[in-house]
């Protein structure tokens, strides 16, 4: 009996590991990009995209697993970025020490926002997070010398790792890829843990979850706090990459973009945030779209995803590939795809 249970557990662990493998392979390929001497423009855009992807993995825990959509996620990234800049300016705290501190600051901010916001559900929560995001931008804009007001703050400290200067574009790129990998693995670990199952139970039916003894409110706030940790780390990487931050980078529009990225990529699948982040960052570049055209394309993509690919672009691609290669009847493939997306 025990042997059977052990075999079952080993089987499910193997199955879960198999879902992580494609992401790791893709990230390994992405890490190999500098071998092909890409342009610095490409590397720079890829770093920005990677920094977004880290925040998106946090958002996927919140939205994909718990079913809560935040429209103020850029504000959590902003808290991390400002924490890093203020710690560096006032206390001489460097990049590595700023990471846990900023992650903690964003997590605490998420908890402060989460406690009143999560008392309401659904659309009201979306509006509340949007309002908090705007509020943070107003506070930063009017924060005087402490926040640098609308001008923002400079951050000039070097990023070093084992004595090596990571400010070089290729090194920073590789470091961001490493952080994206960690974020993907952390997100995967959450999805495949009992905590992840609890979050999904809340997403599917809050009342039923509560009737099973799950503290719904606490877990929802917990998911928001977890997403804040990812956002805080993303904020530190952004602040050190740009060397200058200002409130406009963390207002409502960037938050909408983050939500858009995770929805287009697919919030429930481990590949989704990666796909969404890369797609939204590089689509205007590849198709040479101006911001107005980009917004039209993103809008159309979003409508298409909501109507045709509820589990996001990656979910749709996986389903299409399975249908194409397995030759199984369409309905059966769809059912399997949907079951995977349930995770």
């Amino acid at each position: 009996m025990k042997e059977g249970l052990r075999q079952d557990r080993a089987g499910s662990v193997f199955k879960a590991l198999r879902s992580l493998l494609p992401v790791l392979v893709i990230l390994a390929l992405i890490a190999a990009v500098p071998l092909f001497s890409p342009s610095n423009r490409f590397l720079s855009l890829a770093i920005s995209a990677g920094i977004n992807v880290i925040a998106l993995y946090g958002l996927s825990v919140l939205f994909g697993q718990t079913g809560i959509l935040s429209m103020g996620h850029a504000a959590l990234v902003g808290v991390g970025a400002y924490a890093a800049a203020i710690l560096a300016r006032d206390f001489g705290v460097g990049f590595w020490a700023a990471l846990p501190a900023a992650a903690l600051a964003s997590a605490v901010f998420a908890m402060i926002v989460g406690i009143p916001s999560l008392r309401v559900g659904g659309h009201h929560f979306v509006i509340m997070t949007f309002a908090f995001g705007q509020l943070l931008a107003i506070v930063l804009t009017n924060g005087g010398d402490y926040t640098g007001a609308a001008t923002g703050l400079d951050l000039a400290g070097p990023v070093t790792l084992f004595g090596a200067d990571m400010s070089d574009l290729t090194r920073y790129y590789l470091m961001v890829v490493a952080f994206v990998t960690s974020a993907a693995v952390a997100s995967w670990a959450i999805i495949n843990s009992s905590y992840g199952r609890t979050l999904r139970a809340i997403r599917e039916n809050e009342k039923l979850a509560a009737s099973l003894g799950i503290n719904v409110g606490r877990h929802k706030i917990g998911a928001f706090v977890v997403s804040g940790i990812f956002a805080g780390i993303s904020g530190v990487l952004l602040a050190y990459f740009l060397g200058h931050i200002s409130p406009s980078q963390f207002s409502s529009f960037p938050s909408i973009y983050l939500a858009l990225m995770v929805m287009i990529g697919g919030a429930r699948l481990i590949e989704g945030p990666l796909a969404g982040g890369i797609l939204v960052a590089f689509l205007p570049e590849v198709l040479n779209l101006d911001p107005v055209q980009s917004r039209i394309v993103y809008g159309v993509c979003l409508i298409a995803v909501i109507m045709l690919l509820p589990d996001g672009l990656i979910g749709g691609i996986v389903r299409a590939l399975r249908a194409a290669f397995s030759g199984k009847p369409k309905q059966e493939t769809q059912q399997r795809g949907a079951a995977e997306a349930q995770r």
Binding site: N40, R41, F42, S44, S48, P284, P291
Partner: peptide, 20 residues
């Protein structure tokens, strides 16, 4: 280079102009 009124694009454009 058009920065599309976007800081990430402005930075990428500057990197390209300076280094490439």
């Amino acid at each position: 280079r058009d920065d599309r009124t976007d800081i990430a694009t402005a930075i990428a454009a500057t990197q390209e102009l300076v280094r490439d």
